[in-house]
Simulated assay, not measured.
Amino acid sequence: MKPRRGEEARCEELLRKLDEAAAAHAGCQVHYLMRPHDDSGEIARLAIYDSEESAERTANDTHIMALRSEIHLLVEPGHTERAFFTI
């Protein structure tokens, strides 16, 4: 995602809170906040869970959903959240 101009610090703060909240949920194995080495201004979040069910439980938590909603308002249009599962 790319934060809107002037919202970079707030977006990163909320992503850190989201990361901490997700890490506290059962099944979250590891989590990362990442930036590329270029000057794009993008930031990414990756969390790995024990199972799809654990990930879904976390994603549907009201606190997690509230943080994601706040973050969505701070990023450039076109941002989508995606989930990947093993095949």
Score class of each variant (00 low, 15 high):
P36M: 05
E70K: 13
H31P: 01
D50M: 01
M1F: 12
A44N: 11
M1H: 12
H72E: 09
N60E: 11
V30N: 04
R35K: 14
E7P: 01
A44D: 11
C28M: 09
T58P: 03
M65N: 08
A55V: 01
L73G: 08
R82A: 15
A24D: 10
A83E: 08
E53Q: 11
I48A: 13
M1P: 11
M65D: 05
R68A: 12
I87K: 06
H63M: 00
L14T: 00
F84K: 06
L67P: 08
R5L: 14
A23K: 13
R10M: 04
A22D: 01
R4D: 09
A59L: 15
E42Y: 03
I64V: 15
C11G: 07
E52A: 13
E52F: 03
A9K: 14
L73A: 14
A44S: 14
E53R: 14
Y32D: 09
H37D: 08
R35I: 03
L46A: 11
V75A: 00
R82Y: 12
G6Q: 10
D38S: 10
G41M: 02
L73E: 13
E52Q: 10
Q29K: 15
P3F: 01
R16G: 03
A21Y: 05
H31N: 12
A22L: 09
A47E: 08
L15H: 01
E13H: 05
D38A: 13
S51K: 04
A59I: 07
D19V: 02
R16N: 09
L73S: 13
A59H: 11
D50G: 03
S69Y: 02
G6R: 09
A26T: 12
L46C: 15
E20D: 14
F85V: 14
L67T: 09
G41D: 04
A23D: 02
E13I: 00
D38L: 12
I43F: 02
E42M: 03
T86S: 14
G41L: 04
E56Y: 15
I64P: 05
E56M: 15
H31T: 11
K2L: 05
C11V: 04
A22N: 08
R57K: 13
E12W: 03
I64M: 12
R57E: 06
S40V: 08
Y32M: 10
H37L: 12
N60S: 12
E20M: 07
D61K: 04
I87F: 08
L18K: 02
D38V: 13
E13L: 05
V30Y: 06
A47F: 03
F85P: 01
